[in-house]
Amino acid sequence: MERAAPASVVTARGLGRRVGGRPVLAGVDLDLHPGEVVGLIGPNGGGKSTLLLLLAGLLRPTQGEVRVQGLPATEVARRAQGRVGLLTADPGLYPLLTGRENLRFFGGLYGLDAAEVDRRTGPLLDELHLGAAVDRPVHTGSSGMRQKLSLARALLMDPVVLLLDEPTANLDPVSARTIWQVVRQRADRGLAVVVCTHDLVAAERLCERVLLLAGRVLQETTFPSPRGLPPVGQLFAPYQDALDRQEGP
């Protein structure tokens, strides 16, 4: 008997968005399944971020519709708490608060108390190598630390969909790899991921499908199975070792 494909987590049909009468995106159809990583690539202004915002329910489509687990995307925030995790190039954290205070605040909005936020994020913060940095004010941390915290927040509610907009832009290779690693692991456990990126190597290695967007979907490339993390080259290992030694006790 043929095995039924898992139901789509996100469904977009004829999705379009006009800004000031000018079409930014038109006619996008997308079915996103659990455990699938879909990459969005294309030129600046091609509609990648717009599509991501439409999927997050942060923009209303001017054509078509988006549904997340059957709910209109714009209703998801209110009715399906934490089903969508979001990570943008700007980490979006309060700089004067510590990482932990940021996580507790956002967790609180989802009804979690401080202890529950700590319990949920503990192993994840270890995975992201954040350590003591989580208790320092965010403005004193590096871009990598902020982006990892933002990823921890995106995963806090155990979402079914993770939307990533240039998640590793401006990050050093070690931080970028850590983020890709966590994203890939979560996808392997069933998380559906959409990622906008200009990093074609990362897109090719991490994604099952890659859509080339330039106002509409110009091309869709499918890869039958995940090929692991992006290659790092010969410099990566000594680079990481040197950093590890510097961070030592």
Binding site: L58, L86, F106, G111, R153
Partner: peptide, 14 residues
């Protein structure tokens, strides 16, 4: 300025 608005808007806060 903090870039937090999108994250508040996807949270279940009215």
């Amino acid at each position: 300025q903090c870039g937090t608005l999108p994250f508040l808007m996807v949270a279940p806060v009215r």
